[in-house]
Design a protein around this nucleic acid. Structure first.
Lengths: 123, 123
DNA sequence: AGTATTACTATACTTTTGTATAGTGAAAAT
DNA sequence: ATTTTCACTATACAAAAGTATAGTAATACT
């Protein structure tokens, strides 16, 4: 149980259903950290190989790319596919869930655009 | 074509909807860190005073609460209102933007719920 | 035989983020 | 007069996250 989960589940009145807390935690696992969103974005652009991703995501080190890909795989956002050709080909592909994450990013962009408009109108 | 599709269709070094990147960054500023979402959630539940927030957000220290409230204020998510009564009353209130952030949280929960369903169907 | 490419891993380090603990000042309550 | 409450701030520290740099193993290329 993560800290965030504990926090919200201990709210007074228990008005927040546990399933919502889990859902929110899952979403935060795709967002949190410096590199996960850029990686998901690159995968949506059809960059599927390690080298490809490394070249397309500015300044990412192989250590971080490897680490984040593993986490995204564990969380069911992508699949690592090994094609036993010579030379061996490894591809990272978004799962259906991974692809549908674009909807969350859309909501984020929409809010951000409206927010900026409101902030600049006020001043 | 969704906002995010436009965002990610950008090639490295090519033209890019800069406003989308800013919008996404603004949104991440409300999400990132351990305490911001719990604080926004508590404010949405009508907890407006420092003490109130501290009691309703499990294990938060006054240092973190103060720090995060300041950041959320700077980012236009909430307003700090000082009522010059005796004793002085200080209230933190979500701005219209802050309130509308609930839409992003909804999108996050929606994705998370669907994601969980898909992950458990697969296994 | 020697170099290049792909897909990483290992180790050490720095930076950022969060925690623990104590203290402040103003006013109100006892 | 002393304690309590509110709304914080200060300092030191620990943990987490991210960076820098080098190295590995398998194969392919020349």
């Amino acid at each position: 149980m993560s800290d965030f989960e504990k926090l919200v589940s201990e709210e007074k009145g228990g008005s927040c259903p546990r399933s919502y807390v889990l859902a929110l935690t899952d979403t935060l696992n795709v967002i949190s950290g410096k590199w996960k969103l850029p990686i998901v974005a690159a995968l949506l652009r059809g960059k599927n190989r390690f080298k490809d991703l490394q070249e397309n995501i500015d300044k990412i080190t192989p250590r971080m790319l490897s680490k984040e890909l593993k986490e995204l795989e564990v969380n069911g956002i992508l699949e690592r596919k090994v094609y036993n050709q010579t030379p061996v080909l490894i591809e990272y592909q978004l799962t259906p869930s991974g692809k549908s994450f674009a909807a969350v990013i859309d909501a984020m962009i929409d809010w951000g655009l409206t927010h900026r408009k409101e902030v600049f109108q006020e001043n």
